[in-house]
């Protein structure tokens, strides 16, 4: 028993001294998986020059980021959509300040098998009908005879807000045609890659060989590919700002960190992650 008490004392002592010795400031960030790679890479680089600062980054989605900031559990929220009026009203004590750090497109994506079978572009209306459950088979839009697996996202995810606002007209519209509801961009990408007849929505940066980005056929018949160029010139219809949010104007290290992401060095990270930087 004595050994036990002694070791408890030692541990307590270690914790207390540890807390006092390291005056490390900790900045907590949480929110959209879309913004996460930028912030977490930026944090790595920022820590090289600011060794007394510790930045922790958590996923969860835009809604989670706003809630946690609203409850003042974190210092920086990462969001990939705008804050809704409801959310502002929910937290009257919190003064949300947004800081744009880049631009991104939400791209309707499909499994590579369908893409290779000839479906490379759809109209917004066709995509809407798929999510409403009115189109259930790929042959109805000119593809192979396969049922469509419509992959939706959790309600508060930023990617879904932006996508549904354009496609179904309301950012919180229900999608009765959805067959799966998933969370992060990674999880959605995995499900679409595992399927051979899926459609989903992803940030531009998550498109790869198994998960192809669809072009969008505009009302005038023009086909717009999800390229960086079309995102920069605003032709691609579903674009959004990547934002950081703070409670009031940021101070001290938090301000330095946000300024770092906005600086040319930080914006390079934004570009490397596959997004459009503020300067383009």
């Amino acid at each position: 028993m004595k050994i036990y008490y002694v070791s408890v004392l030692i541990l307590l002592f270690a914790i207390i001294t540890g807390c006092n010795a390291s005056k490390k400031e900790a900045i907590l960030c949480a929110g959209a998986t879309t913004v996460l790679p930028v912030v977490s890479n930026a944090a790595e680089q920022f820590k090289l020059t600011h060794q007394d600062v510790n930045i922790m980054v958590n996923a969860g989605g835009s809604g989670v980021g706003i809630n946690l900031l609203g409850e003042q559990n974190i210092q920086i929220g990462m969001i990939s959509r705008n804050i809704t009026q409801k959310e502002i009203e929910k937290y009257p004590d919190v003064h949300f300040v947004t800081h744009p750090i880049g631009k991104d497109a939400v791209v309707p994506v499909i499994s590579s098998e369908i893409y290779d079978a000839g479906i490379m572009a759809l109209t917004i209306e066709q995509i809407a009908k798929i999510y409403k459950g009115e189109i259930k088979n790929w042959k109805e839009v000119g593809g192979p005879d396969k049922e469509i697996l419509a992959v939706d996202k959790e309600m508060s995810r930023g990617t879904r807000h932006v996508f549904m606002k354009i496609v179904l007209g309301n950012e919180e519209a229900a999608a009765p045609g959805a067959d799966l509801v998933l969370g992060s961009n990674n999880e959605e990408q995995t499900a679409i890659a595992q399927s051979d007849a899926a459609i989903g929505m992803l940030s531009n940066a998550w498109i790869n060989g198994d998960v192809k980005g669809l072009s969008i056929i505009l009302a005038n018949g023009e086909v717009v590919e999800p390229t960086l160029e079309n995102i920069i010139n605003g032709k691609f219809p579903i674009t959004r700002n990547l934002l950081l949010i703070t409670n009031g104007e940021p101070q001290g290290e938090i301000k330095e960190f946000i300024d770092f992401i906005k600086s040319p060095g930080g914006q390079k990270i934004v570009e490397q992650a596959g997004y459009v930087s503020l300067y383009q």
Binding site: L28, S40, N54, M56, V57, N58
Partner: peptide, 16 residues
Amino acid sequence: ATAFSGVKLPGSLFQP
């Protein structure tokens, strides 16, 4: 209790 990235050793009891 947990955060996703950037976490090294917690500096105090109240860090993830």
